[in-house]
Design a protein around this nucleic acid. Structure first.
Lengths: 212, 212
DNA sequence: TTTTTTCTGGTGTCATCGCTCCATAAATCC
DNA sequence: GGATTTATGGAGCGATGACACCAGAAAAAA
């Protein structure tokens, strides 16, 4: 085990890295986000990250290891809004309203690639990438489970009818978010995504005031 | 221009093909459907199709040309249910109800790959595949436009309120279908997809009886 | 300064990918 | 049957992908 490649601690003995690891990782994340795993070549990566092949290999181990790190970074940084909103202290309906509208905004930021890095990744891939596919699918499941948990709390709090099908409702909003991610990648505007979000909230259980 | 590689007419002059072109095309379609364009290699293709490299190249021209043919085949065969339902002579709400439930069934057939070949394809790809990405995106747009057209007829027929935002509603159901396609690829059951479809129909405009 | 430890650029390697060429086999037309 | 036309199998090609190695450079520790 190497001693974690000096995390800020900066007390290694030899020559220090000439590049910012975090920054390089972020650059890689954006590239993977935009082009997917297969669509991003080794050469693209080191060019974008501004480092040499050996530095790359030395600092990140392999393309696949870097992808894992990029996913983790995405989950804890760029995709953190989802879990943050699910932990909001608000009415359950409000939480999901915020969730869908935030998705519309986050999927169309002009400082980041469109859509979501996880939502649609590795749904079609070669048998050699089964591990990657499973990883991505598990992340999707995790997001959906988090939504289900929040819905369950909503039922307990009386925000939702007792008989509400938690799993189905979470799957519905999960589907909607993933569909919105595809739309975003196809170039849909933020306004269009907000309209989709608004209509999606019309499906919220039990009688609300409705309008179209 | 070669004379269309003898379509059934069987009146070419030289040695006849030893394989069924349509059947080989179908096999290729399934492989592309399952693994995507990048995830499907030349060798995978000719192995599955049961032909040699030169036969492949002779009969289909290139991997990309074959992909185009596979997409066309999908649209006119495996994905035909969508347009068929949109042309049904029924109440607009019924049409969309049928659409979403049919999607649940079609996305989980046990004789075909899960999900949809078009919905989620090439959303993340290398710059070299911009053409492919645009092609897929245009197919998605076409499906959504077809839904919008049907909704417009619904407004004209009085099935929907005059002020209905056609584009937004079509985008909503487009998103839902694409999300369902991802769920299907991740292994969601037909029942789960039907639940998603059912909830999606709760978002239908104007006061319907509602229950969860 | 010397030693030690680590980073860095450049080059090389091995596999795979999509594709092509060529000699040959198998049909049809005369 | 002979000529013509087309398909087939097999070998191989150039490009690219991901990775590995090595000699040298640079900084901390002694």
């Amino acid at each position: 085990m190497t001693p974690e490649k000096m995390h800020g601690g900066r007390r290694g003995r030899g020559r220090p890295q000439s590049f910012d690891r975090t920054q390089a990782l972020c650059a890689a994340m954006r590239l993977f986000w935009d082009r997917g795993y297969d669509g991003t070549s080794f050469d693209d990566l080191i060019a974008t990250m501004g480092i040499s092949a050996s530095s790359f290999y030395n600092a990140f181990g392999s393309k696949e290891a870097l992808y894992h790190e990029a996913i983790d970074t995405y989950m804890s940084v760029a995709g953190a809004w989802l879990f943050a909103i699910l932990n909001e202290d608000a009415d359950t309906r409000t939480v999901f309203q915020d969730l869908t509208t935030a998705a519309a905004s986050e999927f169309t930021r002009d400082d980041l690639p469109a859509g979501c890095m996880i939502s649609v990744a590795a749904t079609q891939c070669s048998p050699a990438q089964t591990r990657l596919r499973d990883l991505l699918a598990s992340h999707r499941t995790r997001s959906e489970d988090a939504m289900a948990d929040r819905l369950r709390k909503g039922v307990e709090a009386g925000d939702l009818p007792a008989g509400t099908d938690i799993g189905a409702l979470a799957a519905f909003y999960g589907s909607l978010l993933r569909g919105m991610a595809v739309q975003a990648r196809d170039g849909a505007s933020r306004e269009r995504l907000l309209e989709i979000a608004r209509i999606g909230m019309q499906a919220w259980p039990a009688g609300q005031a409705r309008s179209v």
